[in-house]
Design a protein around this nucleic acid. Structure first.
Lengths: 140, 140
DNA sequence: ATTATATATTTGTTATGACGAATATTGTTT
DNA sequence: AAACAATATTCGTCATAACAAATATATAAT
């Protein structure tokens, strides 16, 4: 018989994750950008001018691998990223964030930050550290 | 400037939630049942023989409201639930779990339980309680 | 009674996720 | 070099999520 605390700890984290997800999602929606697209833009910015290929992106994405090809397609259509063929290895593509992509990020970032602060407002600094520690030990 | 602990606490919980999700999903997939369908079946079982309508289900579902009508459709096709019209209020439908639905639950339950225990294996009883407390304070 | 409003469900549409197959290129083995 | 395996990406398909609109019934207001 499974312990109630076991089940509840998993359920609590699952639900908290869903609440976070839906909050961030509702913000990004206004900018006509999906969470995963946002995630890709942030990864690209983080890599400065180093090019990224699809596998690099997939590895670093928060969410499960979806269809990164098509996610990038959508970002290209919005002119937030550009894609070129890798010259040394023609199987690879190289993906860069554009100035327009950086702009939209700088627009969204402070709003996400503010909301993340709101999401965590009930936790003290010590509690946040504890939560990081504990949730990292869950489900690995 | 947002604190690293704030951002990390949210990211850790988000990722832990995704890990839980993907673990449970991969189990249920083998039984050709989605998480949300499983969730509905458990809710129905929990309500014994009391009928449930769509709104009851929606309120209790862990995941965001998807399309409950169609989820129930799929469960009916598998003969795990049945649906009748409410006699006193013809806007409502009444949904019940069938014996076949109960059977499939009793098949899956122990496997889910075992995996939930595995997911939480690195946490002590005290830590689980702490995690429940902290994650419930996040994102509300 | 007629109109308006609220409730409960269903349906249509678009976008995305999951996953496997297909294609192209590169690297390795014989 | 030919055959084969490994790597990187793209494409096809189906299921589901998100959301809006439509439909049907019930309740309330005039």
């Amino acid at each position: 018989m499974i312990k109630k605390t076991t089940r509840d700890s998993i359920l609590s984290v699952l639900k908290a994750g869903l609440r976070i997800n839906s909050k961030l999602y509702s913000i990004l929606k206004k900018y006509n950008i999906s969470e995963q697209q946002f995630n890709i833009l942030r990864i690209l910015r983080g890599r400065k001018n180093k090019p990224s290929n699809l596998i690099t992106l997939q590895e670093r994405m928060v969410h499960k691998m979806s269809n990164t090809t098509r996610l990038v397609d959508k970002l290209i259509r919005k002119k937030y990223v550009r894609r070129t063929l890798c010259k040394t290895n023609r199987r690879k593509i190289e993906i860069f964030i554009t100035d327009k992509g950086l702009e939209v990020l700088s627009l969204i970032d402070p709003i996400i930050d503010k909301n993340e602060e709101l999401l965590a407002v009930n936790l003290s600094e010590e509690e946040k550290k504890q939560l990081i520690y504990l949730s990292n030990k869950l489900a690995i």
